[in-house]
C-alpha cells in the first residue's frame, strides 16, 4: 500500500518550496493552472509556503479546451486567493498549424504544452518568479508528459508523489472536491481521459510502480504479488523507453571534464 501520510508530505513540500525559492533570492512562483488536481495542488502548496499574493496561476486555454477545465481552475484561484491571469493560446497555435494542417493530435498537444511553457517562463521573468512544476511521479515514470512542455519547471513539489498521493494530499490541503473527483485528462481533445489513453487506472499502476520502483520488487515478486506478467512488462518497458525524458540531452565527451559527467555540481551551488 502506498503511504499517504498527508500531514508529513505537506510539511516537507511547503518547507521545500519556501527554501528552494528563497535561497535563489526570490519570493514568488508562477504555475500553469489546467483545472486538474496536480496543478491545483502545486499552486495551493505554493500559496501556503509563500503566501497567496506571491503565487500567479496562469490559465492558458486553447479554443477546444473544455469550459469545465477553466471553470475548475477559477475555483482553485478563488479558494486559494492566489493571483491569476488568463492567456489564450489559440492564435499562435492556429497560425503554426495553418502551415502544417496534417499534424496529428499528439503533435498538436505537444505544441500546445510547449507554448504554455514559454508563457510560464516569460511570466517568471516578468514577475521575478520561478516556474513551479506540476508533474507527478506516476507521469514522470511513465513518460506521460511533454518534454520541454508541461515537464519543464524550476522546481517541482510533486515529482516524488504518485497520483494516488496527489489525490490524498489534494484533499488535505483543500483542492476543490470536484477537481479531485473528476477523471484526469490532458484535455487535448474532447472527452479525452488519461486512464482510457494509458489503458489502466492510476491507482492500479501506482501500486505496481510503488513496489517496482520504491520497494525494488523484481519481476517474479511482482507477479507473485498479483500483477499480470503483461502489465509488469508493459510498465517496465514504458519506464525504460521514457528514460530520455528524465535526463539532460546526451553530450559527446571530448574533454577531460564534461558537463554532468565529470563536471559535477549541485544545482544549489553557492546557494
Amino acid at each position: 500500500m502506498i503511504p499517504t501520510n498527508v500531514s508529513l508530505m505537506r510539511r516537507i513540500l511547503v518547507a521545500f518550496i519556501r527554501n528552494e525559492v528563497r535561497k535563489v533570492g526570490l519570493e514568488r512562483v508562477v504555475v500553469g493552472l489546467s483545472g486538474g488536481v496536480d496543478s491545483s495542488l502545486s499552486a495551493m502548496l505554493a500559496a501556503e509556503a509563500l503566501g497567496p499574493d506571491q503565487v500567479l496561476g496562469i490559465m492558458m486555454p486553447y479554443r477546444t479546451s473544455s469550459a469545465e477545465s477553466l471553470e475548475h481552475a477559477r475555483l482553485v484561484v478563488e479558494k486559494s486567493g492566489i493571483r491569476s491571469a488568463t492567456i489564450e493560446i489559440t492564435a499562435q497555435i492556429d497560425a503554426y498549424f495553418e502551415v502544417f494542417p496534417d499534424a496529428d493530435p499528439k503533435r498538436r498537444g505537444n505544441k500546445m504544452a510547449r507554448e504554455r511553457m514559454t508563457i510560464l517562463y516569460d511570466h517568471s521573468a516578468r514577475w521575478d518568479a520561478l516556474v513551479a512544476g506540476t508533474s507527478n511521479k506516476t507521469e514522470l515514470l511513465l513518460g506521460y508528459g511533454t518534454l520541454h512542455g508541461d515537464m519543464a519547471s524550476a522546481l517541482n513539489p510533486l515529482g516524488d508523489l504518485y497520483k494516488t498521493q496527489v489525490w490524498a494530499l489534494g484533499e488535505a490541503v483543500g483542492v476543490p472536491e470536484v477537481v479531485i473527483d473528476k477523471k484526469p485528462s490532458a484535455d487535448l481533445w474532447e472527452g479525452q481521459t488519461d486512464e482510457a489513453e494509458l489503458g489502466f487506472s492510476y491507482r492500479e499502476v501506482d501500486e505496481l510502480l510503488y513496489l517496482m520502483v520504491d520497494q525494488r520488487y523484481g519481476r517474479t515478486e511482482l507477479i507473485a504479488a498479483g500483477f499480470t506478467a503483461d502489465f509488469v512488462d508493459d510498465i517496465a518497458r514504458r519506464i525504460m523507453t521514457s528514460q530520455f525524458k528524465r535526463r539532460l540531452p546526451v553530450i559527446a565527451k571530448v574533454s577531460h571534464r564534461t558537463i554532468d559527467r565529470d563536471f559535477r555540481y549541485s544545482r544549489d551551488w553557492g546557494k
Binding site: 500500500m1 503511504p3 499517504t4 501520510n5 508529513l8 508530505m9 516537507i12
Partner: peptide
C-alpha cells in the same frame, strides 16, 4: 537527509 514517508509516523 529526510526520506521515506510512512503512514501513522510523525516524522520521516
Amino acid at each position: 537527509p529526510l526520506r521515506g514517508v510512512t503512514d501513522g509516523a510523525e516524522q520521516d
